[in-house]
Design a protein around this nucleic acid. Structure first.
Lengths: 143, 143
DNA sequence: GTTCCTGCAAAAGCTTTGCAGAAGA
DNA sequence: TCTTCTGCAAAGCTTTTGCAGGAAC
């Protein structure tokens, strides 16, 4: 799936979402920083370019992008909502030590049990927590 | 897995967690109400029995139970942390219409990709959102 | 001229913290 | 007596809301 900045700009136009400078910058940030950023991270980084930027605008923009289906909201921890420009099904692994969030492929549909056949599924989420290889090896070093 | 009140009381003793009346009541509520309650729900219900109960105590107790591994923290929505006495792997489905959370069986381990072989997985979560059969049929009625 | 967008300030909502008094060992 | 637990009040954080000014069309 094509997730270039240009592609997403076009997609926004087809959804009749106007592209202010602030919105463009948020979109650009998400395409260039595939680290599942929080509002805080996006805001802090973009403020360097747009000194007058307000957090409200970041919140507004992310809500609009999420409603338009261009961004997926990721909730792993309370008080730490994150945003992912990659809306295709995949899993997330959060390292409890360094906080990094890793993507991993997962065939969610193959897992859906018969029990849910009468449910309409709109959103699928899989996330794990634990320790990433780097933090694991750091721990062993200090043993 | 045995999740009776008696079993859990014994388990707490083996973990050296003392059992005040408040803690017992929270544990009892969780075993008798497998609806993945929020702090608010637990507090409101228990307050009927314990008029002096404070929300802080509910928070404290749930934290202790979670740290002891007797309760699983479920985060599906921001600002809506829920607690599940069933800590075995299973999926959750939240109906976006009525808000009910349904359990469903899922063989998560069979899905874990090779990519994660070097990660230490401590916690696995799967949740879907959408519409439950009841809300789906209600929608059709009003068409 | 209308409509929509931005950004400040304030409010809202959930959770945590500090602390004094009570309960329990 | 010493430790632990409870519960009130206050603080802390993230997110939302109201609203006035500004930009875009």
């Amino acid at each position: 799936m094509d997730l270039t900045f240009e592609y997403l700009k076009k997609k926004l136009k087809t959804k009749n979402i106007s592209l202010s400078y602030q919105r463009l910058k948020v979109l650009e940030y998400l395409t260039q920083n595939r680290c599942h950023p929080t509002v805080e991270q996006i805001f802090t980084e973009l403020q360097k370019d747009i000194p007058t930027l307000s957090k409200t605008t970041v919140y507004n923009t992310l809500r609009i992008l999420a409603e338009a289906g261009l961004v997926k909201v990721i909730i792993i921890e309370d008080k730490e909502t994150r945003y992912d420009i990659d809306t295709e099904d995949h899993g997330h692994f959060k390292c409890e030590c360094c906080g990094t969030i890793f993507d991993f492929p997962i065939d969610i549909d193959s897992l859906i049990p018969e029990d849910l056949s009468k449910f309409k599924i709109n959103d699928k989420n899989v996330y794990f927590k634990g320790l990433c290889p780097e933090c694991l090896s750091n721990k062993n070093e200090f043993k």
